[in-house]
Nucleic acid binder design. Structure first.
Lengths: 110, 110
DNA sequence: ATATCACTTAACTAATCACTTAAGTATGGT
DNA sequence: ACCATACTTAAGTGATTAGTTAAGTGATAT
């Protein structure tokens, strides 16, 4: 059984970890190798590889190995989808508040 | 040691679960009791309570008990913060692409 | 040829997660 | 007073997570 929103599970899960957000933060500035991503991260290289695997599984990051170095970059589509999910809910919530305010205005002089 | 982004860990973590997103989805339409949130969720009530606790810990939802019913509603601030985090990164990434395109345009006629 | 560099795989561990069932606490209705 | 309702708490379980160390693999530099 496949759920349409399963990719959002992976995207939000990927963004829930500060090390992975730091990697995304680095990658929005441009592509980087695994070692470059690892450098600021008080963690072993295999640890970083596992975070990278989570980011790739979510579709937030893609990578390509050339020679002995793997270069990673952002894939913005999933980032946009996650942003849209939130934006839509916030819009719904605000629309409801507007209707509520309008209703209160219309009924206040009884 | 406190991290400024720790609340984003909790927010994205909370949004990473489909049951919790379903609860948020319900709550953007307006407040609901715990039982109302539980109804569509193929899960025991204590299970729902635990999801609710995660949503409250993240600040996405607040609740208040009146009599024997607890009423839950969305607190949009954290939703907005999560949306902003993504939007900023996407903006950075797009800005970099623009600079790259500009650079390529400026140097293409050598 | 050999040593180094940049990952990669495997295996293990402690902690957290997403549930469950069973039992308990107020509150509201008759 | 009694009973149902609406949570609430506690305790347990199996799966996943976030890290580790140790031992590879293959590419580049000397």
């Amino acid at each position: 059984m496949f759920r349409a929103e399963a990719h959002l599970d992976l995207a939000f899960q990927a963004l829930a970890d500060p090390s992975r957000r730091a990697m995304v933060d680095r990658l929005v500035q441009g592509p980087a190798t695994v070692s470059e991503l690892a450098k600021p991260l008080a963690m072993s290289l295999p640890g970083v590889m596992q975070h990278l695997a989570v980011l790739e599984a979510s579709g937030l990051v893609v990578s390509e190995k050339i020679g002995r170095t793997r270069t990673c970059r952002i894939e913005p589509k999933v980032l946009t989808q996650a942003e849209h999910w939130i934006a839509e809910r916030r819009a719904l919530w605000e629309r409801r508040l507007d209707r509520l305010g309008q209703f209160l205005d219309e009924t206040k002089d009884d």
